[in-house]
Structure formats: structure tokens, C-alpha cells
Design a protein around this nucleic acid. Structure first.
Lengths: 368, 368
DNA sequence: TTTGAGATTGGAAACGTTTTCCTGACTAGA
DNA sequence: TCTAGTCAGGAAAACGTTTCCAATCTCAAA
């Protein structure tokens, strides 16, 4: 009767609040808060009372209120291009595990390569007041990022973001893995090697293509324009790419793909046209998604470690969020790549089998 | 000077708040709130002033504060078993698209089939005060759910949750699709058909197996125990299952799998042992993930429409959340399944080719 | 016995909204 | 011109926390 005015519009009856706990334990809400957060010293006897009161009333701290007052949500935004590309779920899983271990939650969103969606997604993340955002795709309006960076909002990019100071970047060393792949094919006797890229508006796609071209040039091998096909980083793109390669007078004997999904599409396209892999054509992928080893034949591919990438992303975000993080000043994190040889590559028809014995040294990818 | 006490611990300078807008527009915060939410009538001239003030100061409503006072977060929890199983990203994507269209955000989490993780995940979701949660996996402690249901918290299960009233359930009609699959194989001339199930502690796994056994029984076909292999709904499980089937004196001529990942594993296992699909063995999957059509050979599988499943899940959640939702009283949503014939099934060696012409009528899956 | 430092604890402000209640102005009918 | 009725808009109360500041208490040293 005559109690405080209640908002009748709330949906369900509210949870037990810190006040209920305080009343039950016969202490102030400040003490409950301190006990819950393990802050300062609370007399053991009081703490005990508080904890049992918490159990009794089934108290769960309200994250919204916490975030409201502390200004930190302990939420990390993770923007990926396409959740249905198996590479990303693997990344998401690692990222989520690490984040939760370290006391954060993850807000995931995928952009489907559409700039408008990316834009909207980042906005929604900001509205949910994430503490920082890792952008593992392209297509952010430079101006939005600029605004974020100006306000010292932690942003992490893969490969390269807009040219702004104070952005944190995960730099992937495409060069090493892709060079290994090209050298592996060349050692097997391949000379005509084609490359199926990702969508070239993406920096990570052009970076991979450039790494390929550089490795070919190093070996003095030509790459005519018709051997550079633009794909979409999807299986459908791989099929179309293989069709356009099959239409050439002389089929290349090796095909390097910008990611594994493309390689799977290429495998499928070759299967449709009755070309045998690796007898007629060798195929190399990129990413080393879990699926790669289960393809028929198991896919030779360049491994980019999700674990390292995710770990670096979480670290870089925390470095930006937590004022006294040991790496608060670091701006770049490096991720290495390496070739994994399986059965989708072999010496080309007519080449000497003896050459096929080349084995690149197996190294583990490592970040710093 | 001597203004209100500021909390110096907050990380970055705060966003523009509703108060800044109000000051700028020369109105009260109540008016700003009303203008932003389109509630009640605000004089057009004032609304105009408010909106331009919002633009000028770059105001973005703070979701935390909103949720705190309104008691609704407009967040939907989505719990899946394994984000790395491609079926789930497809589901997640559909779910997310629909949710965002309808003004909600999604909080995704995966459990890796571990009860402890599921438990912890649901708790974290509640702490983030999601408005409702869709649980697309198993392993929730019955007691936790009971507490939720008692407090009229919207919970949606797939297949079947704990036996509680007021839970909303998406019922999948495994029977139709799996019967089609078995009939398809039988029509091709198969008699010895094995089944590789999922982990049998999952209801959706036992439901699929039971549907298979029922369909076989209908046709008077025997399923000896050694033809029922328990898998794990992963490729690795599929490989192990195929190995155990290959170890039998007489290999079955058809293998039906509880999901596509298992089927891909089986395909790989058969490839390793040089058994040809579909010449030596026919393989049928379940789910119809996008990848299925790109397998070598393209996988015959039972389609369960992500789109329908996601749509039903979002609808069921909203029915529970919004008091005057048209389907607020509905407790069950039905999802149909259907066979998609591709090239991993054919008549068994020695059977009459003529029989292979059987084509099941193609129907579209539909929910209600 | 008094004093003072240090350890605990409580009171209350603040975070940024939504929403209720109420006031004041305006409209229209008599 | 007056009065009743509408209606727009403002003041202020919540929502559930964290944290500052002041007050109290304990205990040892002088």
C-alpha cells in the first residue's frame, strides 16, 4: 500500500535485486555490491551472510544496470563477412571461448559482404554499447571508423583498416604460406599455375593474389591474365572459375585458390567435367578449414590458424579496452601461415614422378 | 564548476545523452523520449527541432538504460549445439536476419554438446536479460528450465523439451523425409540398409533413428543391431561408423545418416577403403546443408528447411514475449522434411537398372 | 585514559532512459 | 465572456547497479 510507484508495463515480475539481498542479509546494498565484486574488504562473517542471502533469493546481478553505471558492457563485437563460410564459425568458436574465459561476452554479426549491412551492424553493436569491435571483413565506411577512433573506441581490423593512426591491426603473413604452396607445385613440375581470387574489393583477397603473383615471379613463372580468375570466396564462385579455366585451350595443371570454399567449388567443377584431381589438375586451397581434410581427395591447403587469429583478436581488443593492459601500446599483431600437403596435389601428367617427393619442412604457425 | 559528481572511472567520454538533446532543442527530456519513440503526439514543430538536435549532437539512445527501465532488452538468445556444424550457421543466419527485421538482436552461443556449457550459457543469457531463449540442443538441467517456465520466461525447444506445460516446441516431422529416403533406397533395390545415428542422448537423434526403423519395418525390412551404428553428428563419427560397417562380413548396400556431416564422414571413409559411391554403396544424409550438393558425388539427403525452422523459432519466441501476439496461445510449431535426390544413391550392384527410375514426388516443406 | 590510524560499513549520488502524473494553454460550446 | 474539455509538454519517480564520501568501530601506542 502506498509504496513506491511501480511501472506496470514491465513484462514479468522483476528478478531479485541487490536491495532484496541487502534486506535479507541485513546489510547495505553497498556491502552486497562489494561482496559480489570481491572488492575492498568485507568482513568474512558479513560476506557469508551476503552470499547465503544471494542463494536464498536467487539473486543474479543485472548486467544492464551494471553496464549503465560502470560504462563498460563487457561485450565484444565480432563482425565476420559470412557466417556460412565454415572458416568463420571456427574462428567465432575460438573467439567466443577465449572471450568467455576472460570474462567477456560476444556479439556476433555477419555482413554477407554488403557494405550497408556492415554499417548497420556496427551501429547496432555500438547501440548495445560493446566495449570494442573486431572487424574481420571489409566495407566499413571510413567515416564511421574515423568517428570511432577519434573517440578512442577500440577497433581491430584484419589485414588493414582505413589508414588511420591508433587502429589495431592483425597482419596476416600470406606470403610465407602461399610461397610454400607455389614452390610445392613448382617442385612437382607444374609450370602453368592459375589463381582463383576472392572478390577483389576485399583487401585480404588482393593481398593473397599479390602474394601468389610475387611467389610465381620469384620462380620466373608467367601468369597470363586468363589464369587470374576473380571468384567470390564461395563454392559457386569456385565452380564458375573452374568453368572459365576449362574453357581455355590449354588447362593449367595447377590451381591455387584464395580460400577453401573456392577450392571445394573448383574440385566440384572439375568433377563435373570429368577431370581427375590430382591426376589431371592439382588444387590448393587456403584457410585449412576442418572440412578440407575430408574432401575427396583431401585438400592440400595453406593453413591460417583460427586459434592464433582469434587469440590475437581478443588480445588486441583487450589491449584497447583495458587502460593498463600490458600491450596497450601495441598496434600490430602478426599471424603466420603455412602449407599443409594432402592429396589434391601431385606431379602433372608427363612430369617425372621422382620430383613428387619434395616435402616442405612442416612448421607450426605462430603469432607474437 | 561544482556541477554534478562525475564517475571518473568510466572509460571514455560518454555519448551524447537524451539530456543534451533536450537542452539543444530547448525541450524537456520527456519530449525527446516521446519524439524518438514516436509515442503520443508531439507537435510537429517541436519534433522537428528534436530531430535536428539529435543529428547535431549525434545522439544514439542507450540500449542499456532503455532495457533497464522498460524491462525488455529486445535480445533473443539462440543456443545451438555446435557452431562448426554447417547446419547451424545456416540456421543462425536465417534467425538473425528475421530477428533484426523484426527489431530484435540475437545473442548466439554454442554448447559443444556439453551440459555444463549449456547451463552456463543459458545463465549468461539470462544475466544479459534476453527476452526469450530458443534452445536448439539438448542438455539443459530440467530444474533451470522449470524455474524459467514458472516465471513465464519464454523458452522454445526443438523436438521436445522437458515435460513441462507452457513450453513452446518446434516439432520436426522426421517421419516423412526419412520414410521417403528409405522408400527411395528400397525402390532402387536395396535391402540391407544401415543407419548411422547421432549421439543417442539427444532426442533429435533418437527421433531420427526411430523414424528410420519405423520406415524399414513398414517395408518389412530387417535392421540387425550391427546395422545401427551410433555416431556423433560429426565427420569423424561418420568415418568411424563407416569403418565399423566395413568390418562386417557383408557390407550394407545403403547407409542412411542422421545428419549431413556424418554422411560426409561416411563418404570419406568409403573413399579411403576404395568403395565407390554410389556404385558399391548408396549414402543418404540429413539436413541438406548447402555443402551437400557440392560433395563428390553430390549427396542425396533429407531436407529440413532452415528458413522454416528459423522463422518458426522467431515466431514462437515472439509469441511468448509479446503479450498480445496473435499466436500467444500456440504451443507447437510443425516443420516438415522431404527427400532431395542427388547422386550418392543408385541401384545396388546386381539389381535391375530399370528400378532406378523411381522418383519420389518433389514437395516443398512447409510449416504452419 | 586518550588519541589516532586503519579497517569496515552505510548513505546517497549518478548512470540514461521510460512513463506517470500534473499543469497550463488552447479550443469550442453556451 | 465564461466554462468545460483536450491536449501538449514538463517534473520527477523509477529501473538496479557502482562508487564516493562520511561515519563508525577496533585496537594499539602514548
Amino acid at each position: 500500500m502506498g509504496g513506491p510507484r511501480k511501472n506496470p508495463n514491465r513484462l514479468r515480475q522483476a528478478n531479485a535485486s541487490i536491495r532484496d539481498v541487502a534486506k535479507r542479509a541485513g546489510v547495505s546494498i553497498a556491502t552486497v555490491s562489494r561482496a559480489v565484486n570481491g572488492i575492498s574488504t568485507v568482513a568474512p562473517e558479513l560476506a557469508e551472510r551476503v552470499w547465503s542471502a544471494i542463494k536464498e533469493v536467487g539473486y543474479v546481478p543485472n548486467t544492464q544496470a551494471r553496464a549503465l553505471v560502470s560504462g563498460r558492457s563487457r561485450l565484444l563485437g565480432l563482425v565476420v563477412s559470412e557466417i556460412t563460410n565454415p572458416f568463420f564459425p571456427e574462428l567465432v568458436q575460438e573467439f567466443e571461448n577465449l572471450a568467455v574465459e576472460q570474462g567477456y561476452e560476444v556479439f556476433i554479426g555477419s555482413t554477407n559482404y554488403e557494405a550497408a549491412r556492415t554499417e548497420a551492424l556496427v551501429r547496432r553493436m555500438l547501440q548495445r554499447s560493446v566495449d570494442g569491435v573486431a572487424i574481420m571483413t571489409f566495407g566499413i565506411e571510413e567515416e564511421l571508423i574515423q568517428r570511432l577512433v577519434e573517440r578512442a573506441f577500440p577497433v581491430v581490423f584484419v589485414d588493414a583498416g582505413p589508414d588511420l593512426p591508433n587502429i589495431r591491426v592483425l597482419k596476416i603473413n600470406y606470403g610465407e604460406g602461399i610461397r610454400e604452396a607455389v614452390q610445392h607445385l613448382a617442385a612437382l613440375g607444374h609450370r602453368r599455375i592459375a589463381f582463383v581470387s576472392g572478390p577483389l574489393r576485399m583487401r585480404s583477397a588482393t593481398a593473397r593474389r599479390d602474394a601468389f603473383l610475387a611467389a610465381m615471379a620469384e620462380l620466373g613463372l608467367q601468369v597470363p591474365p586468363e589464369h587470374q580468375v576473380e571468384g567470390t570466396h564461395t563454392m559457386e564462385g569456385g565452380i564458375r572459375a573452374s568453368e572459365s579455366l576449362l574453357a581455355l585451350g590449354e588447362l593449367p595443371t595447377g590451381i591455387v585458390c584464395s580460400n577453401d570454399m573456392t577450392a571445394i567449388g573448383v574440385l566440384h567443377g572439375l568433377y563435373r567435367s570429368k577431370s581427375a584431381v590430382p591426376q589431371d589438375v592439382s588444387v590448393v586451397g587456403f584457410d585449412d578449414i576442418h572440412l578440407a581434410q575430408f574432401m575427396l581427395p583431401p585438400l592440400t591447403t595453406v593453413q591460417m590458424s583460427c586459434k592464433h587469429l582469434a587469440a590475437a583478436a581478443v588480445q588486441a581488443l583487450r589491449a584497447g579496452i583495458e587502460p593498463d593492459h600490458p600491450q596497450a601500446q601495441q598496434r600490430e599483431w602478426h599471424i603466420s601461415t603455412q602449407l599443409v600437403v594432402r592429396q589434391s596435389t601431385a606431379f602433372p601428367r608427363g612430369s617425372l614422378p621422382a620430383l613428387a617427393r619434395t616435402k616442405p619442412a612442416s612448421r607450426r604457425g605462430a603469432s607474437k
